[in-house]
Design a protein around this nucleic acid. Sequence first.
DNA 1: CGGTGGACCTGCTGGC
DNA 2: TGCCAGCAGGTCCACC
Length: 274
Amino acid sequence: MPELPEVEVLRRSLERPLVGDRFEAVRVHFPTLREPLCERRLRRLEGRRVVGLRRRAKYLWIDASGGETLVVHLGMSGRLTLVDRTAPLVEHEHLGFELASGRRLRFRDPRRFGVAFVASTKDLDRDRHFRHLGVEPLSPGFDGARLAGLARGRTAPVKSFLMDASVVVGVGNIYASEALYRARIHPRRSVARIARRRFEVLAAAVREVLGEAIEQGGTTLNDFADGEGNSGYFQVSLDVYDREGQACPAACGASIRRIVTSNRSTYYCPRCQR
DNA sequence: CGGTGGACCTGCTGGC
DNA sequence: TGCCAGCAGGTCCACC
């Protein structure tokens, strides 16, 4: 489900309601996620206030008072929503945080690819989940020169390269296809055969598509929703993703094609992208 | 080291 | 109508 824009939309939607609230009780209902939930660690949040929300890659960091941070990753199907504390448990509700305000932060994840844990705030950057991560695409350090440098000595298809979190974070299967369409680069083109100038175009395309998706509230294909349950709108602006057989939006006369690269569906225009 | 393909899970859809 | 293969927005790891 969620790539960088969806996690950022979630972060923004939760920031106002959560900051200043206090964790009163942590309930682990079903600990089996990609990494088993550690109830003992999670309960260290009890009694602490929320002081801020940050995002790193596709992870949400909820900083609590006393130097502890709740880290959440939504995997493919995870949802983090605010509900009334008395709302009934739903299927696949693994975890709930009861808040002093009378609400509950509910974490539900049918496919169980998500992650939730508590770590010391000051150690986050050295945590095994984060220490290998590459550049944030919306940070000033991300540009064509940086991408070209990271591509040096590599031969992978550009789509795999864009989705490699040790290179650049947050770009998943939807936005990789979309950025490459905007940059007019064929997804199978080796990064060894991309000129410096085209890396500038690609970096700009990545920034733009992620930025626009955030403004539109993210992409809701099936079930993405922000912390208040609102769906996104960017799905109507997707140029190629899941549009196999449809006319290229540039009206070039070709239709969108679907191929599989490293086990993921990839969409592109065979005429516009070279 | 870089690159690839499969494993991990449940649920929905489309074709027969 | 009902069944089932195929596919789904992520990440990690074994293997070449």
